[in-house]
Design a protein around this nucleic acid. Structure first.
Length: 584
RNA sequence: GUGCCCGUAGCUCAAUGGAUAGAGCAUCAGCCUUCUAAGCUGAGGGUUACUGGUUCGAGUCCAGUCGGGCGCACCA
């Protein structure tokens, strides 16, 4: 369970530990989180006090630190059960609490019966030392160790360049994948697409019409076709290469060329945001018969039929969701003989199970909200453990340009392109804007605001903290011969006791729990907020405490606190996919 | 009509059922001969859309009402 002492962290830091006056490994506790630090102690206190309760022991951080660094409401929760006054009960529990030495300094009963814990400064500062030992391993956990996870995101069919709206899911998915990796999961980032459907036919048509136009033929370009300029560009490319020789060709070469060009551009755009998928799953493989001549789609039908959930009527094949309490059955195979999108979707998810994923995360937009329950129902009927599937739905993005709210449509070609946005505000601001709001909130992307390279842009606040530390350390190295790779003497950070220092130390202590919470809620946004708090405490510390100008011992300790802060910022930035500039 | 999401400060948004509802931006007042002022300190700004309910405790959970978004195809 320990992430602090004998894990891989120890190996990673062996080199620097050896050449410096290494602090002795001084594990805090074998713990996964502060919750796990408090839990056993409180449990023992309860049993020592003869209190039995069904209620869960909750460890929370009070909104105001004057109510303690951590607190528990167990006395409030269990008072009724125990038929005792909550405060009295709390007092009994407190009398039996036994924490390890020099961890919890003060315990008090407050309010209606809260038990508040105050950590000792030394305990808090030991986390900063831990950060320095562990580096990028600080905040990692083992919940996913030995497990495989797949995160499916973006999954746009190659019908056009990525729009701003698509970016939200892309960044959300990518950050979730990063979060999963911190907890030890082996993560596959997958992109699911279909280059065979109706939309792709329309794409081929659109390109061909523009091509004919380029050849000088008058064409009537219907508004069912893709209106965007990129269609003309692609047609122009084809015309430049083939002249008018394809005028009598069918749609295929147009479709194929368009697909290839568009897919390349999509991947290029994603890469600018640091998003690179490990796997591209073509839906069409589910339509391809295996050696026995059976497709994955067919297998789904057969298996659902065996369970009594398939019927044919009106010329189509139906998934009998009415048997599950829904209002209507759902078409799986159209009367044309083609599967509807639901069928391959079910088959696709079966492959995720068959490929052995323990954790399956799907990221998609609110327009798919009605689809996934059917998929889950089907999987359940077929005996798959749908608890492994986590669905992260992000609400839509509207953009505000010149104060006007714009609704976007790829078909109409009026959508703002993700590429243009990245050109304007850079990859960091783009990523941060997408995840600085909860995924359930409708995101109002104010393009004008995002374009401003000013302090209004939240990314600068975070990055500035990092750049400031780097600048400071450059000076420390140059002028005081400070060794960035060295580690502090054990306990040397305990000299730092001012409020600003303790607050900063506490924020550092909080990081591992924040990572876990963020993943549990599938909300990278929590990390943005956390990092903002961390940066805020750092800026305050920087303002109040002279670092290079303090007396040597203190100066050195503060430099290590800076180093620890920088490391935590870096770890957090890495999850969010935001860069850590050395200077600004 | 119906399913899901949302409604919190002027604006954009936070707040695992907890204690006095918080940030940023904007507004106002201070802080740079001193480690990066893209920073810090302070002030003002709220009937958490509305009405009931659940309980020690509700912005949070439940019911209803109002308002906005997205779905509700033999499109994906």
């Amino acid at each position: 369970m320990s992430i602090s002492s004998t894990t891989s962290a120890g190996f990673r830091w062996t080199t620097s530990s050896q050449k410096s006056r290494a602090i002795q490994p001084r594990p805090l506790q074998n713990r996964e989180s502060m919750h796990d630090f408090f839990l056993p102690v409180i449990q023992s206190a309860l049993s020592a006090a003869g209190i039995t309760t069904e209620k869960p022991i909750q460890i929370e951080q009070p909104s105001d630190r004057k109510f303690g660094d951590f607190s528990t409401n167990i006395a409030l929760l269990s008072a009724k059960e125990c038929r005792k006054n909550p405060r009295e009960l709390a007092g009994e529990i407190v009398r039996h609490l036994q924490f390890p030495a020099d961890t919890v300094g003060r315990i008090e009963v407050a309010g209606a019966g809260f038990i508040n814990f105050y950590l000792t400064p030394a305990f808090i500062m030991r986390f900063a030392e831990q950060v320095l030992r562990e580096g990028y391993d600080y905040g990692k956990g083992v919940a996913g160790k030995g497990q495989k996870a797949i995160v499916e995101y973006v999954s746009a069919n190659p019908t056009g360049p990525l729009t701003i709206g698509r970016g939200r899911g892309g960044v959300l998915g990518d950050s979730l994948a990063n979060l999963l990796e911190t907890q030890g999961y082996a993560v596959t980032r997958e992109y699911y697409f279909n280059d065979a459907g109706r939309q792709m036919q329309i794409l081929g048509e659109s390109v061909k019409l523009r091509y004919l136009e380029a050849c000088g033929c008058p064409v009537d370009f219907p508004d069912t076709c893709y209106q965007g300029d990129y269609i003309r560009d692609i047609a122009g490319t084809i015309h430049a290469e083939h002249g008018s020789s394809l005028m009598d060709s069918d749609l295929l070469p147009f479709k194929n060329t368009a697909e290839s060009i568009i897919f390349t551009s999509i991947r290029k755009t994603l890469k600018r945001l640091g998003i690179e998928h490990d796997a591209f799953f073509n839906e069409h493989t589910l339509y391809t018969p295996d050696e026995g001549g059976v497709t994955e789609n067919q297998r789904v039908i057969d298996q659902l039929r065996a369970q009594g959930f398939i019927a044919e009527y009106d010329g189509a094949t139906w998934f009998l969701t009415t048997k599950l309490g829904q209002e209507k059955d759902k078409v799986l195979v159209k009367s044309s003989g083609e599967p509807s999108y639901r069928l391959p979707d079910i088959a696709y998810h079966i492959t995720k199970f068959e490929r052995g994923y323990d954790m399956i995360v799907n990221v998609f937009g609110a327009d798919h909200i009605d689809e996934y329950p059917d998929v889950l129902e089907a999987l359940k009927i077929l005996g798959y453990d749908t608890a492994r599937i986590k669905v992260a739905i992000n609400q839509f993005v509207t953009t505000t340009v010149d104060g006007q709210t714009v609704k976007m449509s790829t078909r109409k070609g009026n959508a703002d392109l993700l590429d243009d946005l990245i050109d304007d505000v850079g990859a960091d601001a783009t990523r941060l804007f997408f995840i600085m709001r909860g995924k359930d909130s409708h995101l109002n992307f104010d393009v004008d605001l995002a374009k401003k390279q000013s302090k209004e842009n939240p990314v600068f606040y975070l990055q500035y903290a990092h750049a400031r530390i780097c600048s400071l350390l450059r000076l420390a190295v140059q002028e005081a011969g400070f060794d960035e790779a060295s580690l502090p003497e054990a306990g040397s950070l305990e000299k730092l006791t001012s409020p600003a220092e303790i607050e900063l130390g506490f924020a550092i202590l909080d990081y591992p729990d924040m990572v876990k919470t963020s993943l549990r809620l599938l909300e990278p946004q929590k990390m943005v907020e956390y990092l903002h708090t961390l940066a805020e405490f750092f800026h305050r510390f920087y303002q109040e405490c002279p670092i290079l100008k303090a007396e040597p011992d203190i100066s050195r300790a503060r430099l290590f606190l800076c180093l620890a802060t920088r490391q935590v910022l870096r770890n957090g930035f890495r999850i969010l996919g935001v860069s850590a500039p050395e200077s600004m």
